[in-house]
Design a protein around this nucleic acid. Structure first.
Lengths: 210, 210
DNA sequence: ATGAAAATCCCCGTTTCAGGGGAGGAGAGC
DNA sequence: GCTCTCCTCCCCTGAAACGGGGATTTTCAT
């Protein structure tokens, strides 16, 4: 059996050291290199390749989601294992959609970590328990959330800015009645009865970013 | 010069490994032990002591802020160096107030990490650049935020729950006019003109937790 | 005890929001 | 062609929120 060569992309020296230490004790795995941002990661892969890339979601210069897509486009044979501190299902879902082969949280044990790396290296998928759970949660959340139309989202964001219906109407060059209607649909669709509850619901469900 | 003995409290095996690896290469520092939750940390210090505790802010069973206070109460001579992934000034401020001697983010370099440990070990304070910046930001934010009275906060949270003034009045056993007044003061103090803007401001400034 | 701040309540009037209904046109898809 | 959704606009009514006063009592620290 061949040695699995891996590459780490993470901007935390501690994490790089930690992963390196975990890997060092595994005979079948070898650390080929590391990068602390997306740019130098891409630079590395111009002239090199590896079996598995361990990729943090939060990089200083680019989101891990974008980097994942780019890397997969140029080097489809590389298997990407995403690593994140946050158990936000939306990240898990996005990364897997962008071609990642696995997703683990930073609180995994050494055993689980090694298992994840070897599984991904063999071309299979690996999600640790929490990641899988978070992704299923996210999918269910997306399904049971009512679909807002383009205009409704637009109005929603302007409401969140503190504009009144008249001001919104003015901004979108439509009549007040129109905004009135959109606002009514928003309340009806999301099942709330006033502006405060609307705001709360939307912030909690990621319909509004702060 | 004596050897500095340190203890790690963090629920991420990767971080523990990383820190251990960084420390191992320093002759003057020795890893005495580690814990992955607050309970086993406290258990360790019943019969042992160290010079420096490296403490994560987010622990599974207790917040690092609470653990920091408890540890400082029982063992005032131990110097605590807080370590966190998040650059939220409010955490930095709280930890320093609870007796921590230093605060660094997990993206510090090895050199900075070692410097932080030795500085804290010698009884001095250490804040890395971002942590200091975040704390000053937080202090300024607190200062320029208007002071809300007990009742105003109470009303604010009920508004955020989606209750109308009448419902709030009913809940607090006061008249509608009273809630009307409180609501007016909230808008005036926070400098906003309607409920949506009120919600946005409060969520952004941590006056409301989701 | 005495002053300041907070909490309580009320008046007025205006604006905005909420809820019900309906209706026409534009566009996408079948 | 037809249907369906979305966007647009209108009517009406009542409720809630906003804005500007003013006033009384409680509370609390000096």
């Amino acid at each position: 059996m061949n040695v699995t060569r891996i590459f780490i992309v993470d901007d935390h020296p501690m994490i790089i050291e930690g992963m390196a230490a975990m890997i060092q004790r595994e005979p079948g795995i070898e650390l080929a290199g590391f990068a602390m941002n997306a740019a130098s990661c891409l630079a590395y892969f111009v002239n090199n390749t590896v079996d598995v890339v361990l990729m943090d979601i939060n990089l200083p210069d680019k989101s891990g989601i974008d980097l994942c897509r780019e890397l997969k486009e140029k080097h489809p044979s590389i298997n990407i294992l995403a690593i994140s501190s946050f158990n936000q299902g939306t990240y898990v879902k996005s990364m897997m959609e962008q071609g990642a082969s696995g997703y683990i949280f930073k609180n995994v044990t050494r055993e689980e970590f090694v298992e994840a790396v070897t599984t991904v290296a063999s071309g299979k998928q690996y999600l640790n328990f929490e990641a899988g759970f978070a992704m299923r949660e996210e999918k269910q959340r997306m399904e049971r959330l009512p679909v807002l139309t383009r205009r409704e989202k637009e109005v929603l964001h302007l409401i969140a800015e503190g504009l009144t219906n008249i001001q919104i109407a003015d901004k979108l060059f439509v009549s007040q009645s129109t905004i009135d209607s959109h606002r009514k649909s928003l309340l009806a669709k999301l099942g709330v009865k006033n502006t405060a509850a609307l705001m709360k619901f939307c912030v909690e469900n990621g319909l509004i970013r702060l």
